[in-house]
Amino acid sequence: MAASSGLLAGCATTQDTSRLQPGGPVAREYAAMYGAIDTEPFPIPAVDLSTIDTRFLRREVAFRTTEQPGTIVVDPGARYAYLVLERGRAMRYGVGVGKEEGFNFRGSAVIARKAEWPRWTPTPNMIRREPERYGKYAGGMPGGPENPLGPRALYLYRDGQDTYYRLHGTVEPATIGTMVSSGCVRLINQDIIDLYRRVPTGTKVVVLPSGGEATS
């Protein structure tokens, strides 16, 4: 999958807000990138690419930042997460972010834990805000195809403490590029698997305020 992830590797300085045209070479490449995965404990369906703006699909881009290669930079305002690469490049992923500005984590953290098919437990704040929706999951939901964290989760800690924010997959890929979550950063399942493979525990994550300075 790493080989195909650079299929649009030029200086992607413009944002294509169109949908993919069926049958074209780019559409075929993305269909392979976001195809069904049957090598996991649970099946991961192919992504319906007609529901996602092409600018939020994975690609390598030019990226100016003072962060070191290997750092993840999340720009909630632009709805992107960048994995900083060498020589002014980054792997860019479309994301969904908190539905209200106050829900979003800001600043620096580290990935202290990685999990495949993670268990999901709503935070106490989520249960307080929407008890009818989240109260029944207070004891947690095991990993699986209905779990909102999807097939992978990267857990953000600051000063040794869990922030309760994660980068994770989603059961709703059409929400990528929107403000919809309770503050976590969600990626297409195929993208969180790709990112998960690339980063070890201890990876630095920087979450910019909306309107941050990341440039691509």
Rank of each mutant, 00 (worst) to 15 (best):
M1I: 11
A2Q: 13
G10P: 06
G10H: 13
G10V: 08
A12P: 05
T13P: 01
T14P: 02
Q15R: 13
Q15N: 11
D16P: 13
T17L: 14
V26R: 13
A27E: 15
E29Q: 15
Y30F: 15
Y30G: 09
A32I: 09
G35P: 04
G35M: 06
I37F: 07
D38E: 12
T39F: 02
T39I: 10
T39S: 13
E40W: 13
E40L: 13
P41K: 08
I44V: 14
P45M: 07
A46P: 03
A46C: 05
V47K: 06
T51M: 15
D53V: 13
D53E: 15
R55D: 14
R55T: 15
R55W: 14
R55K: 14
L57Q: 07
V61I: 08
V61F: 01
V61T: 10
A62N: 13
T66P: 07
E67H: 07
E67F: 09
P69D: 02
G70H: 03
T71N: 00
V73Y: 01
P76I: 05
P76W: 01
P76S: 09
G77Q: 04
A78W: 00
R79G: 00
A81Y: 00
L83E: 03
L83Q: 00
L85C: 01
A90L: 04
A90F: 07
R92K: 11
R92M: 14
R92E: 07
G94I: 01
V95H: 02
E100N: 10
E101W: 09
E101R: 12
G102H: 10
N104Y: 00
F105K: 04
R106E: 03
V110M: 04
I111H: 03
R113T: 01
K114M: 08
P118S: 09
P122T: 15
T123N: 08
T123M: 10
N125E: 15
R128N: 12
E130L: 12
R133F: 11
Y134Q: 08
Y137G: 11
A138R: 15
G139M: 06
G140Q: 10
G140D: 06
G140M: 05
P142H: 02
G144E: 06
P145G: 11
E146Y: 11
E146T: 14
P148L: 10
G150I: 09
A153M: 13
L154I: 00
Y155N: 05
Y155L: 00
Y157Q: 00
Y165E: 04
R166W: 02
L167E: 06
H168F: 07
P173L: 13
A174E: 13
T178N: 09
T178M: 11
V180A: 08
S182L: 05
G183K: 01
C184I: 03
V185T: 07
N189W: 05
N189G: 04
Q190M: 10
I192S: 06
I192V: 15
I193W: 05
D194A: 12
L195Y: 01
L195E: 04
R198P: 06
P200T: 02
T201D: 03
G202W: 03
G202E: 03
K204P: 02
V205F: 00
V206I: 05
L208V: 00
L208W: 01
L208P: 02
P209M: 03
S210A: 14
S210M: 11
G211I: 07
A214V: 05
T215I: 12
T215C: 12
T215P: 00
S216M: 12
